[in-house]
Every structure is written in structure tokens, then in C-alpha cells.
Amino acid sequence: MAETFLFNALRAATDEEMARDRTVFVLGEDVGHYGGSYKVTKDLYKTYGELRLLDTPIAENSFTGMAVGAAMTGLRPIVEGMNMGFLLLAFNQIANNAGMLRYTSGGNFTLPMVIRGPGGVGRQLGAEHSQRLEAYFQAVPGLKIVACSTPYNAKGLLKSAIRDNNPVLFFEHVLLYNLKENLPDEEYLVPLDKAEVVRSGKDVTILTYSRMRHHVLQAVKGMEKEGIDPEVIDLISLKPIDLETVGESIRKTHRVIIVEECMKTGGIAAELIALINDNFFDELDAPVLRLSSQDIPTPYNGKLENLTIVQPEQIVEAAQKMVQALV
């Protein structure tokens, strides 16, 4: 495939998996005729029909529960959250049913399903459309949580998520759909549980995911000018965390900065710091530092919105402080 937009990479993944397995279907608001609010399912209904690209009424709780029932009885539903924030309405079905039902049923049922869609802070979309639900859902047992960040990993991860026999929450980012990248022509999968070492370095480990990966990479340029050599890791899997890759890096750099877009309280970094302390405390030369969004509803005003989320300069500054303090 030539240069491909991220939304088209997701579309290709869906298309390939639907062609490969007739039990795979997509449901959600405007996934059929309209092609999805970010065009991830554009025209797929023409190939696969209206039952496999099922346009649902606006009833998040019920269509998510319906996907649970379909998964329990042998289909492989992909629920598109038009905006992941809407899935707050389906919290019960995601937590109590998708997440816990296999366990409470003593293994009677498996739930192969994907719940995917755009999350994150966009451009002045207002608080309700700027959610980072990965933090809300991380405490639910039985869910896998994944965040894609490039066209390449978006495609390979979504294919793996569709083939996985567990419920997978698959986070895309509203501002990354138009990223472009050359993708391989041949089929490939990206494993759900592996972090990606985006840049190797020796001075500090920067753990990040989703759109913040790109903020971090921008910041890396500034760090290089300052003579700092960071290692950048895209977590990819937010649950479970790939501690092997994280640990390997910490043993090399002994310093960690976490950059996330979710809010600080109860965020992904909060859990990650606990895991790092539990597992690699002796390797650390400094306390782990986290850069998170402010603990506030995302404001509409553009300047305030920028102040709410982490900016590249802050990442450079944090890296400087951490590395210089230890020289």
C-alpha cells in the first residue's frame, strides 16, 4: 500500500478481517451509509451489506450490550464509538458485562469483541468530546486496552484486536486520523501486548502513548540540541503494561519520565509509577516524573486547551532538569 492515512489503515484492517472471517461485523452510529464519523468504514457496507455494517440508533448502552450478546454467541463484533466519550453511557455494559462476564460465568462464555473509536483532546471540541477514557477503564478486570499512534501500528493492532478472543478497548486519537505513512503491501499483524521502542537512547526513558508519542518526538529534537539522548517508548498496550520492555529500558537509563494525555489523578501514569516502583525501584536514580493533563474539564478556549495538555517544551524542560540534576 502506498502512502496511507491512519483512518484508511484502520479501514483496511477492518476490510481485510471482514473478508477473512464472516463472523466479524461492525456496529455503531453512522458506521454504514455515512461511513463512520472519521470515515474508517467508508463504503464498506457496499461490500458487506447492512447487517455487517450495522447502523444503530443512538443507544450506546444497548448496542454495546447487544455486541456482548453477539460475542457470547459466536460473532466478532466491532463497536465503533462515534466518539469514545459517548461510551461513558455504556460503562455498565463494558465493565460489568464485557469485562467481567467471562469470569463470573466461570469460563462459560468468551467475548471476542473490539470497542474502538476516537478519543483524546482534539481542537476545541469542548469537554465532553475531549475524554481520555483509557484512565477510567483501566481498573476493569478482563479488558485489554490498546492505543494506536501511527498508520502502521493502527492497522496491525486493529487486525490483532479483531482476532483476539477477549474484549479489547481500542483507542484512536481524533487528531491522528490524517497521519500518513507508507504501509507494507503484504499482510502484517502487530501484537497487542508489546510496547514499541520508538527511539533508542541512554539518558532517560520516556514512556508515552497515542498522540503524546508525537509530542515527545518533537521534544526529542530539543533534547538532542541539549545533548540529551532519550529512549522513547510507546506503550501501545495500556493494559496489561509491557513491563519487560519498560524494565529493559529502565535498567539502561535509570530515569523515567511519563508523558500522557489523560488527567493526572488516577491516570495511566499513576498506575505505571506504582508498577515501576514495585518492579524496578532499585534501578531508579531519580523519582519517576509524570507530565499529565490538568485535572480539569477540557476548556473550549484554544489557549486554555493548550495549557490543559502537555506541550513539547515542557517535555524538553523536564528531561533537562532530570538529566542535569544527575550529572
Partner: peptide
């Protein structure tokens, strides 16, 4: 629950089983 006996559950919250049954019917 019993997959063998096609018993989808056992849903403890009021009304939450209805969409699950709907999913089985859709299937």
C-alpha cells in the same frame, strides 16, 4: 450461566440483560 444449555445469564442489574439477549437474537 450455562453455554451448554444456552443460558446467557444471570444478570444482576435491572434491565442489563435485555441488550445481551438482543445480541443473541441478532446473531
Amino acid at each position: 450461566f450455562s453455554s451448554q444449555h444456552k443460558l446467557l445469564g444471570g444478570f444482576a442489574f435491572v434491565a442489563e440483560g435485555i441488550p445481551v439477549a438482543l445480541g443473541a437474537a441478532f446473531q
